[in-house]
Design a binder for these strands. Structure first.
Lengths: 354, 354
DNA sequence: TCCCTTCTGTGTATCGTTACACAGGTACAG
DNA sequence: CTGTACCTGTGTAACGATACACAGAAGGGA
């Protein structure tokens, strides 16, 4: 007697509801998915039977299998899952994604990523209708896994490689623009930025070095800052790049303090995030530096903490970008030409332009 | 010819992979789910065929249906989905949930909630293996929907009603404890707190009123604060409760400013969250009040912003509570006796006890 | 009266996978 | 040489739902 699986189930099936209601299973199905398709009387009998049996509605997995749609959007975040709730930028982006999901009645599934090589398998095991991939590195195997599923997918500010659409701003141009402000009348500028690759090593580079930078966001912003510096006639070697392993205020604070106490203290720090910038500000304040006279500081993203600190920063609407990504990944929109804008917000941590 | 559904599919099936590999479908299935079950040679042939066809692995919905498990944990947040990424406390809690999910390789699905009455339906339509429900009101119909699914579920700091296990701290005792600090030598104390019910009306109560409070968290904390006040021999009517519609710093600031400029300016404000407390601090500072001499302020949760502000607050580990909820909802643990602790963290926004 | 449309209910086949039982082969102990 | 255990591959029957086609009843116009 094959197929014996003793699934000791408590959950009633549609067939049982149909039997109790005295109708066919199809009528029950229609009562749930297309109520207009059944008579009011039949609908009432189905509802009564369902209530009596404690039937919670069509089994989601069975429905998904048959319909070919799940009703859920997958989100892939690099490295660690909890990052979604810890990094302010990721959170703002995801708030935009969730706005669209809520409006459409679509679930939002965070794919469990740990940084292990088996993560790719997890992408293919999760039941979703599309993927939004938060900025990652060019060589991330997860991108292949996402592409393999054949589901619609969008990368936010990520690599152009996989043939998947990419949504985001022109980071290089934006960095060049805020670099103008950050580096005005600077002689020993430093870029305080994100890791180069998934190795996340902490290091200090100079602008004449050209190590491979696998994170497109890091690469583009660094290139933009360097564009501005060298474009103003300075030598690349005098621009330094302090690579922070993670985007956290204490990282920025520690690295900035180290530099400010070093032999060539920076007189301008352009950070790739407001968190790193606020860390630098904290270090500078502790050391008694006058801002912006002795040190200019710029951030990136104009997060909630930037305005109270008077931080000059680069504003972009991550929330809108998240919403855009969600719409594309759900097939609600095909417009992937980014069209997202940014602007330099000048406050009090930078010296006025001459 | 019934059952014609033209699913124009690009995705290959297991059967096709089996045919190309020259094995039976079951061998393919085992190659994916129990690699030790097949010979190395067969596994290699399956893998080669899969690669050739672009087979991304077993179809998640089909696998879920057959196995009876989805590999995903559902999280239900009251009101609005984006709340998950906007409210710092929710984010910390969810970080704990996601820690467990990541370690177990389980997806984290946020149920799309909008506040509409049809939300309950959405709970039953999402494919998950269990639910974690973030603090909600006693009469929230979502609780019934969650219970109806028959899946394991846990409520965080929510109502005891539905027979579902509740995890959290003893809010009433905790409020009483921090109330001691907040109200020391106070004559016109105010509790700055969360809404009473899902209506979220803004209002000002006095301690002798007893309106129905549907949010257990609000109710317990309010009762705790009032316990302390009346326990010290004061009249309940002299304790006021400023009900803020949403947990946001600007709400706290606005309401606090209004009170501080009113006819009976408070000399102590005990807030139900650090956000509201920081808003109150901002208002007080703007008005030139000396903290804590002219006004004591306490918060709740000891979030990252509390320490820099010197805020006296009630610390609890939301992250651990989130992890605990996840473990229970996933059936990894049955210990639902809460066992979570809290402690009063005294900083500089309160007067020292006599 | 007849034909055509609309409304409502039902039977069938299928979505893609996996639990189970079984069969043939090999290995090894007695 | 026999019996038992293990390894590996396969066939069958579900998991629980829905797309589709069809059938009978009801309604309306010519």
């Amino acid at each position: 007697m094959p197929g014996v699986d003793d699934n000791s189930r408590a959950r009633p099936t549609m067939r049982e509801v149909a039997r109790v209601a005295g109708v066919s299973p199809m009528t029950v199905s229609y009562a749930y998915s297309q109520p207009a398709r059944v008579s009011a009387e039949a609908a009432a009998r189905v509802l009564a039977a369902a209530r009596q049996l404690g039937y919670p509605g069509p089994h989601p997995a069975a429905r998904s299998l048959r319909r070919g749609r799940v009703g859920t959007l997958g989100v892939v975040l690099g490295e660690r899952l909890s990052y979604a709730f810890e990094d302010p930028q990721a959170a703002r982006f995801l708030a935009g994604v969730s706005d669209v999901c809520a409006a459409e009645g679509i679930g939002l599934t965070l794919v469990p990523i740990t940084g292990a090589p088996t993560d790719a398998r997890r992408v293919t095991q999760v039941a979703v209708d599309g993927f939004v991939v938060w900025t990652t590195s060019d060589d991330d195997p997860i991108l292949d896994a996402v592409a393999d599923t054949g589901l619609p997918a969008v990368i936010h500010a990520g690599p152009q490689t996989g043939g998947l659409p990419v949504i985001g701003i022109d980071d290089r141009a934006a960095a060049a623009a805020i670099g103008e402000v950050a580096f005005a009348s600077a002689r020993r500028p430093v870029v305080l930025g994100f890791p180069l690759d998934r190795g996340r090593a902490r290091r200090l580079l100079t602008g004449d070095e050209d190590p491979p930078i696998r994170f497109p966001v890091t690469r583009h912003r660094w290139e933009g800052f360097r564009d501005t510096w060298t474009g103003a006639g300075h030598r690349a070697v005098h621009l330094r790049f302090a690579v922070c392993p993670v985007n956290h205020i204490t990282e920025g604070e520690t690295f900035a303090r180290e530099l400010l106490q070093g032999t060539e203290p920076p007189d301008a720090i352009a950070a790739m995030s407001d968190e790193l910038a606020l860390g630098a500000l904290r270090a500078a304040t502790d050391l008694g530096l006058r801002i912006p006279d002795e040190l200019s500081v710029t951030g990136w993203d104009d997060s909630d903490t930037a305005a109270p600190a008077g931080l000059t920063t680069l504003a972009q609407s991550l929330r809108e970008q998240g919403a855009h990504c969600a719409r594309v990944a759900l097939g609600l929109s095909t417009a992937t030409s980014t069209g997202h804008t940014w602007q330099v917000v000048i406050r009090t941590t930078t010296r006025p332009a001459r």
